[in-house]
Design a protein around this nucleic acid. Sequence first.
DNA 1: GAAAATTCTTAACCTGCATTAAGTCTTTTT
DNA 2: AAAAAGACTTAATGCAGGTTAAGAATTTTC
Lengths: 212, 212
Amino acid sequence: MKIIRRPFVSQNPFYIRCMNTDLILKTISKYITFTEEETQFYLSFLRHKKIRRKQFLYQEGDVCKYTTFVNKGCLRTYAIDNNGTEHVFQFAIEGWWMGDIESLKNGTPTLMNTDALEDSDIIMISKVDMDVIYEKIPKYEHFSRMILENAYIAHQQRILQNICFTAAERYQYFLEKYPQLSIRIPQNQIASYLGITPEFFSKMKGQVLREK
Amino acid sequence: MKIIRRPFVSQNPFYIRCMNTDLILKTISKYITFTEEETQFYLSFLRHKKIRRKQFLYQEGDVCKYTTFVNKGCLRTYAIDNNGTEHVFQFAIEGWWMGDIESLKNGTPTLMNTDALEDSDIIMISKVDMDVIYEKIPKYEHFSRMILENAYIAHQQRILQNICFTAAERYQYFLEKYPQLSIRIPQNQIASYLGITPEFFSKMKGQVLREK
DNA sequence: GAAAATTCTTAACCTGCATTAAGTCTTTTT
DNA sequence: AAAAAGACTTAATGCAGGTTAAGAATTTTC
């Protein structure tokens, strides 16, 4: 098999030759086992990129061509409503996958923006390359299914909580489920993720503390 | 390969020997192609069941052991909040798959109830059998991934809408996306799915019509 | 086809969270 | 280290959608 390093292509590219691939390989090895040859083949498809705080990876209207793995740092994806208000759809830190599957799968323009909350190192795999990987390493389908199931479950829980919980209950759950995020991400971003304004978030926090 | 018909096992079983499998095979053939032998092998794992209107398939606290395909009729899954109010998580009609993937995957008790809105014919595949299918017919992983991606996208859209849209906008979208459901399912159930009360739904509908 | 059970509607009043605004504190930039 | 930008808090006021209640319409059951 041919081994090639693939650059990330964008209008404002910020190439880097290569970064540490321990984390991504470790993540995969939790579900499937690559041979040495498969590992090298897989690595040859990765495109490494550094992205600065506040820099966009995708903007509304772009067609997403890459799945992203966060090697270091923190990204967020958000939508903007008719009043111009931002609403955080998801965060992603080291070891997490992200990407608008709808845009990626259907080739439609994304409705969301993705930017970096911290200077970050990311690894990207293009949709086209992913299809080659699925063809040559069929067990990678299994890995993708596992990751997708986990993401689906997280979304299911979020929908149930938006349906059944008050803002304070959702915040409580967020603290328990994502303690790493709660100390790392600005509160106005967490408020947005929870579906409330920063002002109400602040008030709510005060109430919760006073009750204790 | 051995061909066996598997009964659906529950505390209150309502066996039927077999039902039409055209729909499920047609659904699968949109994504992958079975050989004749694979088809027979696959069919041998299906458990056919009839379920009456208002009958439960799963109740909160059950561990889900089966993935469900709706062959005819209509099911719904809903959660109950701390005030005792029901909230519809999803509907499923002919040709749709359903199941609490969280409970199925992790073996944890489901937080939701699933019951029938109409007398329905369903086909179930146990988790254990599914693993055998994945092993013997690896391309079924691909089919599952496709179905899961579609389900994930639907959830993503729902989260975005809960975040960015008013109740009236969500209703508008529901009408466009699921016209079959809007004429078949009671309005109080649709209201619950949209995240509003039947009273507000009624009021909102009146407003929308008066504006036209 | 009568009775029972659901579903739908209307209306008065209520509440959780949004909006607006203004000030303080913290972080980033230069 | 000063200036600028961003993040957090508090408080007054507003509104989308909830709650309660009660009657009308429809569907289901027997």
